[in-house]
Simulated scan of single mutants.
Amino acid sequence: MRMPLLALLSRGPAHGYELKQDLEQLLGAAYPQLNVGQIYVTLSRLEKSGLIVGEEIAQSSRPNKKIYRLTDAGTEALSAWFEETAEEPRLRDDFFMKLALASHTGLADQIGLINNQRREYLNIMRGLSKLSITENSDNRIAQLLIEGAMLHLQADLDWLERCQEELEGPR
């Protein structure tokens, strides 16, 4: 959450709740709801590391609020982040660890695990399909997020099929 907050602050000073609203509006309902408390914890850490500075603003009828702005170091960190590539693939996958340990320990049936995971992915895809229809169609970023998630799920379903074929095939 650090870098997305810095990116939003590059547009100008803001307080935590504004940043939460900006991210939710940008990403749409498909993105998990953000915890405002976690945003403020992250902002505090960013401030301690010198990437942002906060300023208390007095309000007459409400408690003071803290407005954050990006520092030069924050701008440099943000530029470096945009230059980096994503470090995936997912080699540390919790499901695959269960699958690998199931036969090794005898604690679970591998095909049963695959079938359960397949059902879960299909349920998630159905939910995303409904969300795609109800999500504001002019929010192209949210639509791309949903589409990306659907493509990842389809790849995961294909991979589950491959796992099942391998496990059920001749030894």
Rank of each mutant, 00 (worst) to 15 (best):
Y121Q: 09
Q33R: 15
A155N: 06
L43N: 01
A102E: 06
N116V: 06
L131T: 13
T85E: 13
A142M: 04
E47P: 00
L160V: 03
Y121G: 05
N139R: 05
Y17F: 07
L5A: 03
E147G: 07
W159N: 14
G50A: 08
L27S: 06
E87D: 12
T105I: 00
Q164T: 03
A7Q: 08
M150C: 02
E83H: 05
G37D: 12
E120D: 06
L99Q: 04
I124S: 04
A80K: 10
Q110K: 13
S44Y: 15
E87S: 08
A149E: 13
S79W: 02
I114K: 10
K48C: 03
E161M: 10
S44D: 09
L107Q: 14
L144W: 01
R45A: 12
R2E: 03
R119H: 05
I124V: 15
I39K: 02
N123V: 10
S60I: 08
T75K: 13
K20A: 06
Q33D: 04
P13K: 11
I124N: 01
L5K: 01
A7N: 05
P170A: 08
I67K: 05
A142D: 02
L19E: 08
E24F: 06
V53P: 00
T134E: 09
S10G: 06
T85F: 02
S137E: 11
A142T: 15
F96Y: 12
L27K: 14
P4S: 05
T105L: 08
T134V: 14
D22E: 10
R92N: 12
E76G: 07
L131M: 14
Q154C: 01
H104G: 04
R119M: 07
P32V: 02
L145Q: 10
D72G: 08
I57D: 01
P170Y: 03
